[in-house]
């Protein structure tokens, strides 16, 4: 790692916060994609079997 000087804490904190929020945003978005897709699949299967 390079030397970040006397303010390394702030730089690391800023990058960590942005990293955590960005990764969290991606994780939530992707998990919603799969959850809704599964829900739709399940409901469509139920409709076909019911009809």
């Amino acid at each position: 790692m390079i030397d970040l000087g006397p303010h390394a804490t702030y730089i690391i904190a800023a990058y960590s916060f942005v990293f955590i929020v960005t990764v969290g945003l991606i994780a939530v978005t992707v998990s919603n994609v799969t959850r809704q897709a599964r829900r739709l699949e399940r409901l469509e299967a139920e409709r076909k079997s019911g009809a």
Partner: peptide
């Protein structure tokens, strides 16, 4: 784009659930 697709899927699923 991903969130828009999720919302479209969700609305489709919601409608099926209402029908059910």
């Amino acid at each position: 784009v991903l969130r828009m697709r999720t919302e479209v899927t969700k609305r489709k699923a919601d409608r099926l659930e209402h029908l059910k």
